[in-house]
Write a protein that binds this DNA or RNA. Structure first.
Lengths: 299, 299
DNA sequence: GGACACTATCAACAATTCATTGATAATAAC
DNA sequence: GTTATTATCAATGAATTGTTGATAGTGTCC
């Protein structure tokens, strides 16, 4: 027996004063209402209503139960409609994790526009380059760069991420422009600590051999620093175009070994479930998807 | 789906932090708990928990729902246990209707003893000789004298009620003692307005003919008055022995036409239902049943 | 006062839902 | 890399649900 329905039936019978009218209002048959009330009485072990075929009268137990049951039903209704509101109008706090360099350069206008479109949504943006656990750390969405291995999570590809090698024209003039990965030998490499590379690619093979023990170059876990260093002639950086793009456009950096370019990675929005998504999350996913254009505006 | 069970499952999962432990505590299978929570989510249209195989995390909607759901469950539990108490310990207000003359003479000690045995029960005793509607007027028990025709109500026979004709020895000396119903002709009849008589009886036939238009005697709707009148020699009264008994024992009244005595009626306790009786009612019925003895102490 | 309409409930059936079992994918610990 | 644990899925038989038609009680209207 669904006690909530039974309670609702009982309360309706009391307020309507008759089983038939209660059944009308609940859009069921009088038989069912009668059965519900009987079952409720059986469950409680007390008669709630004294009834003839014409009149209904509450017993003492019924009176006491009625009040409280009505309160409980109100609470439930309110509770559910509140959940419903939370669902239809996007609202609440949206907790996002994003890669540091990407967020610094490209998240601010997006979030500002998103909040203009969804005033009820507050945003908590956490910048992080390490691997973040969506559920464990309570994020609604995690933006991540790389090739995603399958898991129980949903990963929606938001934008392609091209990783290019580049250096300042001055540096290349002084040290020569590599035409082949093997020419990289002896160059100063500006290494990014967290980069995930697909080992099937030739560019990677060199990096594995020479990049790892990068005695002559520098290493950082922040791409901006590396790109800025490259711009000032510190060496060769392997960084995504969403960082190096403007500098390349302005001629401050020059792309090298373009024909050996790494297979494009992606910017992914990772979230927990496809179904029953809170609408703040769904709205955000919809919003960010396509926001950067294809190809993205930084390329 | 029983939403209450589903809510309980959800709340337990949250408080236990795992489906398996929740299942243990609820004494069901983890599968069922999982299903309940899923159904609840489906019903609400929101994800309540983000879950991997290892960790559980509340969503925002889940957090909001959890609090309120717990409150609702507490309310329900409290409500039901209160009803249960009301049921096991007899308590509450017991509303009784009883015939005027009977109640005046015989109810006081009974009620006093009953309340001593059941301190939690308050009593509202309404004296009334008209036909009272148990459910309509909200009585728990109606004591009624007569032959009960079947209805949806339960009528438990509490004691036999003998109706006897009697008059004072002085009256009989002066007017003669009737030996046969036909001898009643010409006597002064002290008529009771509400008496219900079975028309198959010879005594009744006379009353129908002679009693109805009772020009020479008197009529009252109160048996005590009639009996007192009979004692003081006003005529012949047809009244139950629970009124006339003591006067008869003391010789103030003399029974006549004993061989034509009306078939004994009964004192009935009428109540609405046999099952799911509030225990204050059941206790009272049990208490009054047998209280007057068989034959009753007034005979 | 008797036919009538209305009401609550009962009984029985078909459709649905339920709880259980075993299997599976994902994850953490060893 | 293997094992153990966890949540969920899938399939099955069992229990429950809501429906239908029937029945008894109860006012009402001529």
């Amino acid at each position: 027996m669904d006690r909530i329905n039974a309670m609702r039936a009982f309360v309706t019978v009391v307020s309507e004063g008759a089983f038939t009218r209660a059944a009308d209002r609940l859009e069921t048959s009088p038989q069912l209402v009668s059965k519900y009330v009987s079952q409720l009485e059986q469950h409680l072990g007390v008669r709630l209503l004294n009834r003839t075929t014409r009149k209904i009268h509450l017993t003492e137990a019924g009176t006491s139960y009625h009040q409280r049951a009505q309160q409980v039903l109100n609470d439930i209704d309110e509770m559910e409609s509140q959940i419903g509101d939370l669902q239809t109008r996007a609202q609440g706090l949206l907790r996002i994790s994003a890669p540091v360099s990407f967020a610094i350069r490209h998240m601010a206008p997006l979030l500002s526009e998103f909040q203009k479109a969804h005033p009820g949504v507050g945003i908590d943006l956490q910048l992080n380059d390490r691997k973040v656990d969506v559920v464990e750390e309570g994020f609604d969405v995690v933006l991540r760069i790389g090739h995603l291995k399958s898991s129980s999570l949903i990963a929606k590809r938001i934008a392609p991420v091209r990783i290019v090698m580049c250096a300042s024209p001055a540096y290349l003039k002084q040290n020569g422009t590599p035409q082949h990965p093997e020419d990289l030998q002896g160059h100063r490499y500006l290494r990014y600590s967290y980069i995930e590379l697909d080992s099937s690619q030739s560019l990677h093979r060199w990096l594995q051999n020479n990049g790892q023990n990068n005695s002559s170059g520098m290493t950082s876990n922040n791409g901006d620093v590396l790109v800025e260093s490259a711009i000032s002639g510190a060496g060769i950086a392997l960084q995504p175009t969403f960082i190096s793009g403007p500098a390349i456009k302005e001629g401050k950096l020059q792309v090298i070994l373009q024909e050996y370019e790494l297979e494009p990675m992606g910017l992914y929005a990772v979230y927990a479930h496809r179904q029953l998504l809170a609408s703040k999350v769904r709205s955000f996913i919809d919003f960010i998807d396509g926001y950067f254009g294809d190809p993205p505006y930084w390329d």
